[in-house]
Design a protein around this nucleic acid. Structure first.
Lengths: 145, 145
DNA sequence: GCCATCTCAGTAATTAATTTA
DNA sequence: ATAAATTAATTACTGAGATGG
């Protein structure tokens, strides 16, 4: 996808690699363990979305003041989560509070994360639209002589 | 308004969006509507950065503060830091370990942060290049008819 | 005026995939 | 074939503007 045209890969396949480099002195590289090759078509992983966000002291509102707790590691969403989010996005690009809460419960993510995902998703969507306009324009010019 | 027809005029933040969106669906004519992936930067000299940047952390605590144990939170870089990074980038898009360390010391940032900044900066540079070729192409076609 | 809560642009930092040595 | 370096993509956050109460 990618705002500059490259196609990397469908986001549906993610490898679950374990990393963690024991020795490592401030060099900015990381070890990337065994990469397995996946097939292109969506492998529905039957894995649970739970367990990722345990241990959080149940804060109801999103938009809480950050930086109060650490545990701010970036976690990549599972395929299940992405799938559902994507479906929900297709049904409506804008996220109402109700839907946010519903998704939050269903996916085991914080409301804030849902909101952030939608925000980023809208940005990507918009970028693609723009790219598409460019392409269309280019095409039009191509065919006029 | 909604997510895409927003009325926000470009922030005073550090990107000065000086040209409008080339394609413009006239429905919602807001100039900033499309997130043209563009040029931030290019010239972010001391002069310009001076008065215009009300959006930056106005505290000029550059070097102090973050060296000793700050919590590792995301902190937006100060103008001074950006300036120096930018200048360094102009002199060479690629970051050698020596330079990284030097910058790290001078800016009070971790080497990893320097590396990350350069990575992201290269990505933006590339995006700009691509956008630019689109523009050039468009321009050429324009002049052919 | 305040304040809480949306929006989005921009970007820092991480993870995933590819390239390179 | 491996491991390091780099790119691409993604997640999360910052700061600003808008808006409704």
């Amino acid at each position: 996808m990618d705002w500059n045209g490259n196609t990397r890969h469908t986001s549906v396949s993610r490898t679950e690699s374990s990393y963690g480099n024991p020795f490592h002195n401030d060099y900015d590289s990381y070890y990337h363990g065994g990469m397995e090759v996946k097939h292109d078509q969506a492998i529905l992983s039957a894995e649970t979305a739970q367990g990722l966000n345990s241990g959080r002291p149940s804060i109801e509102r999103d938009m809480i003041s950050r930086s109060s707790f650490q545990e701010k590691k970036k976690r990549t969403l599972t395929n299940n989560q992405l799938e559902l989010l994507e479906r929900s996005f297709q049904e409506g690009i804008k996220l109402e509070p109700d839907r946010k809460m519903k998704l939050s419960r269903e996916l085991g993510l914080e409301p804030r994360q849902i909101a952030v995902w939608f925000q980023n998703r809208r940005a990507r969507w918009k970028a693609r639209q723009i790219e598409r306009s460019y392409e269309a324009l280019k095409h039009d010019f191509d065919h006029m002589s």
